Simulated scan of single mutants.
Amino acid sequence: MPSATYTLFRNAILSEQQVVCSYDGRPRELCPHIIGTNKNGEEVVLAWQFAGESSGRLPQWRCLKLTGVRDARTRQGRWHEGGLHRTRQTCVSAIDLDINVHVRKRR
């Protein structure tokens, strides 16, 4: 059974909503694109971080282990797509939902 955080991020992908949360002690503003599990079976999400704090430059792709996400909530706002994530992403091994395959393809 998926965690509550997993469900929140999955629903954010389906409705193209931003997610605001804390990760590694830093506030993050994200648009999640792919969710599933990594090679160790941990729940993970590949998201475009467009604002908040980071150890590197923003915007950029982020791979988040959902066990490390705190105080996540969705919000309305402009959807940020980032660069093409199909360029050999290694974050999510077992993909449950990919915005480009499951959401945008239906339009």
Rank of each mutant, 00 (worst) to 15 (best):
T74W: 05
C91Q: 04
R75E: 14
D96I: 08
I35N: 04
T37P: 04
G83R: 10
N38C: 02
S54G: 12
D96H: 15
V19Q: 00
E81I: 01
F50I: 00
F50H: 15
L46V: 05
Q89R: 07
F50P: 06
E42I: 02
K105C: 05
K65L: 08
G41M: 04
G41F: 07
Q18R: 15
L84N: 15
L14T: 05
L84G: 07
S55I: 10
H80K: 07
W79R: 11
V69G: 01
V101D: 11
W79C: 05
Q60R: 15
F50V: 03
Q18Y: 00
I99R: 03
A47V: 07
S93M: 10
V45E: 03
R26W: 11
N38T: 03
H33Y: 06
W48M: 01
E53D: 15
Y6L: 03
L14H: 07
G83E: 10
C21W: 01
L66Y: 03
L66H: 07
Q17K: 15
P27E: 12
N100G: 14
Q60A: 15
G36V: 00
I34C: 02
I35L: 00
P59G: 09
G82I: 01
E29S: 11
Q18M: 08
D98V: 00
L97V: 08
T37Q: 05
I34S: 01
W61I: 00
P2A: 08
D98A: 02
T90I: 08
K105S: 12
V101E: 14
P2K: 09
T37S: 13
Y23K: 07
I99M: 01
E43K: 00
R106C: 00
S54E: 06
R78A: 14
A47F: 08
P27Q: 12
S54I: 00
H33C: 04
K65Y: 10
L8Y: 03
Q17P: 01
G52C: 11
E29T: 05
T90H: 11
R10W: 09
G56T: 15
F9H: 01
L58K: 11
I13Q: 00
V19R: 01
R57C: 02
V19Y: 01
E42L: 08
E43R: 08
R78G: 09
N38I: 04
C91V: 05
N100L: 13
L8G: 02
A94D: 14
Y23D: 08
E16M: 14
L97R: 10
R26Q: 15
D98F: 06
E43Q: 10
G83F: 09
P59C: 11
S22Y: 12
G25W: 10
T37H: 09
V69R: 00
G56E: 14
